[in-house]
Design a protein around this nucleic acid. Sequence first.
DNA 1: CGGCTGGTTGATCACTCTCAAGCGTGGTGG
DNA 2: CCACCACGCTTGAGAGTGATCAACCAGCCG
Lengths: 255, 255
Amino acid sequence: MGVVDLPRLTQNCQSCPIRHRAVCASCEPDELNALERIKYYRSFQAGDPIIWTGDAMDFVATVISGVATLTQTMEDGRRQMVGLLLPSDFMGRPGRARATYDVVAATDLRLCCFRRKPFEDMLQQTPHLSQRLLVMALDELDASRDWQLLLGRKTALEKIATLLVILARRSAIENQTTAALSIGPLAVDLPLSREQTADYLGLTLETVSRKISALRRSGMIALEGNRRVTIKSLAALRLVSGEHDPERPADRERA
Amino acid sequence: MGVVDLPRLTQNCQSCPIRHRAVCASCEPDELNALERIKYYRSFQAGDPIIWTGDAMDFVATVISGVATLTQTMEDGRRQMVGLLLPSDFMGRPGRARATYDVVAATDLRLCCFRRKPFEDMLQQTPHLSQRLLVMALDELDASRDWQLLLGRKTALEKIATLLVILARRSAIENQTTAALSIGPLAVDLPLSREQTADYLGLTLETVSRKISALRRSGMIALEGNRRVTIKSLAALRLVSGEHDPERPADRERA
DNA sequence: CGGCTGGTTGATCACTCTCAAGCGTGGTGG
DNA sequence: CCACCACGCTTGAGAGTGATCAACCAGCCG
């Protein structure tokens, strides 16, 4: 099914590209050694399913590279993506034996996996690990609530613009080019097809296509192929995205 | 501003109605004593604001009784509710000094508060506390993702039905009448006005009103006043809500 | 060359929003 | 006691956004 189990490379956590952003970020060397003993890598190709809702889930994992999607499906086939897992993001839930979402590799994907039971044991014994997981869960919760605003209240155009802004931000973080964010054109690779994008934004793929075309016609973005977007004006895009400037919350009337 | 600070009653945690569901649920007696030393109660009246986005947040709290809402607002006034805090739910985020949502008392409300710094210190020292908070955060994350499905993909009628089913479930949990859930009529008090309901469901208040009327005309529910709903057929309501039966996930094709 | 997949574009439809009027209850004051 | 108003809610008519249905296009691979 496309799943490739690699031989147990004894790859060093110290040289791991996401060492300082993943669940293991605040582990001490000895804690890292303990994790290293129970970890194993798995690779998936773009499109591979990783797990289905209801399946037994005997591992948890960190995304090392690539993008995975979390989606929910209704009986009549309507789908809503509820999460995007990017490098350093955590998948699986300690204490839960079955998956509650479909997880699919959107791009080629590499996971650092831990069998669930040993990981849960380590969570109990390793405050650095559980505290880090708590922070990550709270960050995800914030992201999910921001997404609620997008799904509930934003127009199709605002949704597309928001997604592009977020992808620009994430890609800047990954490339450590934060400083350059607000200046000049910026190339972003969409990790999602039009249909997946639609599932993420609560739209149809036709509407996604139309609104991307509209942004292209307006000159805010340019397209090279279907997946590569050049953001010509991040400021303009941010404006149509309807986001407040997160650094400078507006003053507010009090009753 | 309607905020009422009660005198520091030395009320006993042992007799607390939510003792076994709140963040303190898995604390040992000595841990509970430590919490008891830093706790204080605050009461709010229906409609009182508790905190605004961007305000300094020097406490965290557990809802003892009543309902509070978490909402996000866009510059042009569009609002999306992103959380409902019911008894035993936790508000505030350890490690964060400012509120990221508006929190408002939807009904008369009683909070068990902890100053943030001492609480954070206790989190560090008390695995029972941080582990419980992790579980609660993950539960909230699941709820938020379910809400994403509702906001992104459900019709107005499905949204209303889903809300009623959830309120029925929560009120059953609070009253320990789980067994009776599937049988007979069931009275639910809406903690939210039509407008708040609209903000929760990503609708307008007119659409909320229309769809509630539609459910009434169809005979699934009856209304006594604006806030009290009698669910005449929970099964029918569940059907129109579009939820899978959560206990029996459908079999699924594999590629 | 033909079929397949993913994407774009067009025409129409329908659901929800918007704007507006009306209703019922509760409170206030003449 | 009743007139009046305010507030929350309901209902109606019309408009608009995004969905649906359908045709078409480009790239890719057999």
